[in-house]
Design a protein around this nucleic acid. Structure first.
Lengths: 338, 338
DNA sequence: TTTCAAAATGTGACCGGTAACATTATAGCG
DNA sequence: CGCTATAATGTTACCGGTCACATTTTGAAA
């Protein structure tokens, strides 16, 4: 508890050199004579000296801290992105502060604190279009969107290639022989939902099938909305044999609805979705889904952020990540008679 | 991007007072004449001045940063604790750095960086007894365990009251009429598993039933271990009518095993567990379980940590949190004939 | 009024590093 | 062997706050 921390000047004194020489050594610097360097390093080891990050930040004017803001930290998809971002940050010699903001006001306050007070050097934003968050982005610090592409190319981003994934999911159902394929989307204010919508339409059109708006329901990512989504669809269209759910969570709700309605999955109804959340192989039936590599998305976001910090430019990169089909039990050919 | 940040001395100059007076004002200080204070505040607002946290940290010798270390950030139980800890930290004027360490070496390196370099003021440790982490705890900074009680009273902690919860779970099964109740534990190196084991035994003994070691299997928290746990149990004891799983994850595995073995839950076999993870009401059948308030645990951990920082003492608090039974569909009376 | 303690404000140093520049040591060369 | 270019090291100021103490106001009692 006694704060007898060794400082750079203590090392200098003990080594009989100037503090600047020690500074050079700890920064793996340019021109220090090998002998001096070795000597200083020995003293550093002897005194167990660690440079003080705060002082260094102060002097350099760089905090060495990145931040990641999500609506919450508990959602598996967010948490995985943060996990990836966080470990990548350490590899890039940063620390990552992760914080959750429930609403627009909290978000804006958080950004202000992070940027103006804590002097965070860059920010990763998950879900930037939820409750108008994007309006409160800082303009004096680099920002990267993780898991969402920006409107208008204004922000660097790393996201799933939603169009392609949705197309592939729909094609998978088509290839099994389905012709009446419903979809439950996430909140359409989020661009990824629009992209997945687009991919779904593209696949249908490529198969010269009409896009029927009656077969498309807007959900909110929750299992409950998946449940009610399927109920609504079936009330409108009883020839439905397959369902593309825009995420696993809603798919889980649809699975439950199907069971409650005495529909067997996959015999009567096929269900496919996107994410591959932890228990997706433990639902009944195990879910066929496209696995997103969230940690990779997070790690790439950090990488792009670090690049933007050390080499500011007007260029904005947009990385699209692909997803891998995980075939389980929730999809099959449509029933023979329909 | 232009770093024309306003400093405390800029404010002082503009307000025609000394820098120290501004410092007093921003610290909501003791003795500043109301008129002066108002004037300085006006200038602060006018210039949009924000104190620089790094400089403040430097001068005060306090970083204003807490850290939380978990095996990973994606596990729901860990993530929820972190969520609670993080928002509580902000309320206490700290920021929380959350970091994951997969193994002992990473953990020890992380602690060293956090404490010696970043000057983190306190650390919350989740799962301190996994791969010997507790051996690498810092001794010059307060530590709080979240979700685990310490051995030997040496560390402040906030954790579920495992003994009581396990007893109540077992009692619930007993009250439904079950007499042959199996248990799958988590890794027995973790104290909470031993405590849940104890609670289970207490309940049986209170009902004057013998504790049969054949009915107890050690798992590793994973659904797979729950699956194999149930299989092993049934191979040994076919009169089994109920199962206490030490967490939901393993319970989910057991549910799957039961289905594969053509056992109906709850008609043939009742299953109860602990946690209430996000989709526990969406498994088949919906899981009866004890809900842990993880965010509360995290928030309390932060509170205790903040207290320990501002008022160092040799006293160690140990908070025990209770869990709430969530009755769903996986438990019922045992089959009539057995 | 004068006097003096208390309240309000100002001054200079300091936290522990880094940046920029000054100085000294080393070595290559005529 | 002296001279200079360059490498190595040292000096001083500074980052933006806070701390401890000095100084100036203020106002209530004498």
């Amino acid at each position: 508890m006694t704060d007898n921390r060794v400082t750079l000047r203590d090392v200098a004194r003990q080594a009989g050199v100037s503090h600047q020489t020690v500074s050079r050594v700890i920064n793996g610097s340019d021109k220090v004579r090998p002998a001096t360097k070795a000597h200083v390093e020995a003293v550093i080891a002897e005194l167990d000296y660690r440079p003080n990050a705060m002082a260094r930040s102060m002097a350099r004017g760089r905090s060495g801290i990145l931040a990641c803001i999500a609506p919450n930290l508990t959602d598996y998809t967010f948490a995985s992105i943060i996990e990836g971002a966080q470990s990548a940050a350490r590899e890039h010699d940063y620390f990552l502060l992760s914080a959750s903001a429930h609403d627009e006001a909290q978000f804006s306050k958080l950004v202000d604190q992070l940027v103006n007070t804590r002097r965070t050097e860059g920010i990763i934003v998950i879900n930037p279009y939820v409750n108008e968050r994007y309006r409160h982005l800082p303009d004096d610090v680099p920002v990267v969107f993780a898991g969402a592409r920006p409107r208008e190319d204004s922000t660097t981003s790393v996201a799933l290639d939603d169009v392609v994934v949705a197309r592939e999911a729909t094609e998978h159902l088509l290839s099994l022989g389905h012709r009446t394929i419903g979809m439950v989307t996430g909140p359409m204010e989020e661009d990824c939902c629009q992209d997945r919508h687009l991919g779904y339409c593209q696949a249908l059109q490529a198969a010269t099938l009409p896009v029927d708006d009656e077969l498309i329901i807007e959900g909110d990512w929750s299992p409950e909305s998946g449940y009610s989504g399927l109920c609504t669809l079936l009330a409108k269209e009883n020839r439905l044999t397959a369902l593309f759910m825009q995420n696993d969570s809603m798919a889980v709700g649809a699975l439950r609805a199907a069971r409650d309605l005495d529909l067997r999955v996959p015999e009567d109804l096929s269900v496919i979705s996107v994410d591959d959340i932890p228990y997706s192989s433990f639902f009944t039936p195990p879910l066929t889904t496209f696995r997103q590599d969230f940690e990779f998305i997070g790690a790439e976001a950090t990488r792009l952020l670090a690049e933007a910090i050390e080499n500011p430019t007007d260029e904005r990169t947009h990385l699209l990540i692909s997803a891998e089909l995980v075939l389980r039990r929730s999809t099959d050919a449509p029933p023979a008679t329909v």
